[in-house]
Amino acid sequence: MKYWLGFVLAGFMASAWAAQVEVVDAWVREAPPNAPMMAGYLTLRNPGREAVVLMDARSPQFKKVEIHRSSIENGMARMEKQQKVELPAGGEIRFHPGGYHLMLMYPVKRLRGGDRVRLELILDGGERLEVVAPVRRDHGGMGHPH
């Protein structure tokens, strides 16, 4: 019993250490057949006292993953590749349609609603966060809930 409790506590502390950053509401937009590019969205929370930087992302289900940010400037829709995204201490950043997103490039095989995408987020200091994001068909409207 004592041994078991110690194990749980150690496990809890380890995960609190490593997973200082929380990832919630991760999802990937289902794309038309043969679409070469898909987009992944999630919310990153940093309850810690120090800023954390998202450096990179990858997924075994895509040839390449990049961090992008969409914007509309003077009526022009643009995307900009982000080298990193800083998560302020105690803050959160929402990746959503029309803003930050994970650009998921060249799926190894077609993904449909209900499938799951395994993502790995790489933070400064080399820490890795494993995320599983369900694929779902979206009704559009820049992330406004329907």
Partner: peptide, 19 residues
């Protein structure tokens, strides 16, 4: 006016139009 390599803005807009 869009393009099919567009992962974010174009599918979002087309989904709205379809809806």
């Amino acid at each position: 006016f869009g393009y099919t390599h567009c992962p974010d803005f174009c599918p979002d807009t087309l989904a709205v139009l379809a809806r």
